[in-house]
Every structure is written in structure tokens, then in C-alpha cells.
């Protein structure tokens, strides 16, 4: 564990807590994309399939349970909670998740690390699911970014949520650089490239978020 990775995990945790805070306290999910939340639930479900078989540390298991629990409860709130669901604007959330999931699944079948880790006991299925979750996480924010462009006035909590979600993967990139230089043969192109793509997708959001913070004006993304 290094400071970049711990900071990344805490930022990720904070993003989830900000969203849960928004939904649970003001009982509103205005401006939040249900499609992105559902994609994230799939990301965690497919990434943590081995939560009960491969134990790493109390921290690791606890964080996995938190991410699984929070992502599924956010989806539940937005779909079934009688008050929250009313504030969900499905006409603005029109991105079709399958056009993201299918290519990621095909790509995971074609390009995964199973071939370099032949001696590993992990089953091919787990490898493919884990790789699928990496690719899917890289693009899972797209429905939310599209929705932000359509939503004229983005409220602060939503803006902070997206910012923290983007920042966590940027911190992970620093973690991978750190681990590359401190641990021999720590090379994971698949994770690095998908993590880089994920962070680059936030580039324009970061720019407008920084501008709104610097000029102290409301955050707005150009349509």
C-alpha cells in the first residue's frame, strides 16, 4: 500500500459517500445518471467475484463490501425509493448501457492477462470478468457526463461527486507509477491503459470544474 493508492481509495470512498449523502439526506437524485450507477454496480459485481475466495486483508475486504453495498443501494434508491425515484430525470438519461457493455465484454475475451499468468490458479472466467470490469469502469462515467451536458444547472454535490470519481483514478495512475519503480516486474498494461482512458474522459470536466472553482461561478458544461 502506498500513499497514492490510499488517497485514491479514500477519494473513491468519499465520492460514493457524497452521492449517498445527497440521495439519503435531500432525497433527491436530480442530475444523477442511473445508467452510470447501474454500470458501476456491474463493475463492482464483476470485479469482486472472488471476494470470498481470495482474501487479501481486512482493509481490502471491507472496502469491497462498502463499494458493493453502496453501489447497489444507490441503484435501489434511484429505482425503487418512492421519493428519490421521482427526482430521477430519465428523459435526460438516455445513454444505452449495452453499447458500452458488449464491446467491453468482447474486448475482455480478446485481450486479457490470462496468457501472461498461465501458472495462476485463477479461472479464465474470473480473469475475463475482472478484465471486463476494468474496461467497463473506464467508460461507465459516459452516461453521467452526457447527462451533465444536458442538465443546465449542475448542483454542487453532483459536481463534487463526479470530480472525486475522476480524481480517484488519477491518483491510482500515480500509484501504478510508484509501484512500477518500487516493485520489480510490476507491469500491467491492461490496467494502466484502461485507467488512463478513464481519467482522460474526465479531462474536459476537470477543466470546466476548475474554471468554475477559480472564477467562483456555477459549474456548466458546454452542450
Amino acid at each position: 500500500m502506498n500513499i497514492f493508492r490510499l488517497a485514491g481509495d479514500m477519494t473513491h470512498l468519499l465520492s460514493v459517500l457524497v452521492l449517498l449523502l445527497k440521495i439519503h439526506t435531500i432525497k433527491s437524485c436530480a442530475g444523477i445518471s442511473l445508467k452510470t450507477q447501474e454500470l458501476y454496480a456491474v463493475v463492482f459485481a464483476t470485479r469482486y467475484l472472488d471476494i470470498f475466495t481470495s482474501y487479501i486483508s481486512p482493509y481490502n475486504t471491507m472496502m469491497k463490501l462498502i463499494f458493493l453495498g453502496s453501489s447497489f443501494s444507490i441503484v435501489w434508491y434511484m429505482r425503487y425509493h418512492k421519493i428519490v425515484r421521482r427526482s430521477y430525470d430519465k428523459d435526460q438519461d438516455t445513454f444505452r448501457p449495452y453499447i458500452l457493455m458488449l464491446p467491453c465484454l468482447i474486448l475482455a475475451l480478446l485481450i486479457n492477462e490470462k496468457f501472461t499468468f498461465k501458472e495462476i490458479s485463477t479461472s479464465f472466467f474470473l480473469f475475463v470478468m475482472w478484465t471486463f470490469s476494468l474496461y467497463l469502469e473506464a467508460v461507465a462515467i459516459l452516461p453521467q457526463l452526457v447527462m451533465l451536458q444536458r442538465t443546465r444547472n449542475i448542483d454542487n454535490l453532483t459536481g463534487q461527486y463526479v470530480f472525486l470519481l475522476g480524481a480517484y483514478r488519477a491518483l491510482y495512475i500515480l500509484n501504478w507509477i510508484y509501484r512500477y519503480f518500487t516493485e520489480e516486474h510490476f507491469v500491467h498494461w491492461i490496467t494502466w491503459i484502461s485507467g488512463l482512458v478513464q481519467t482522460l474522459l474526465y479531462a474536459d470536466f476537470f477543466y470546466y470544474y476548475f474554471q468554475s472553482w477559480k472564477n467562483n461561478v456555477k459549474l456548466q458544461l458546454p452542450a
Binding site: H12, N60, K64, S121, F127, N175
Partner: peptide
Amino acid sequence: PLRQPMHDEL
């Protein structure tokens, strides 16, 4: 059995 080193990350 050996575990994929990458799996130690979330």
C-alpha cells in the same frame, strides 16, 4: 496457489 499480483488492488 499463486494469486494474480494485480488483485491486491480494489
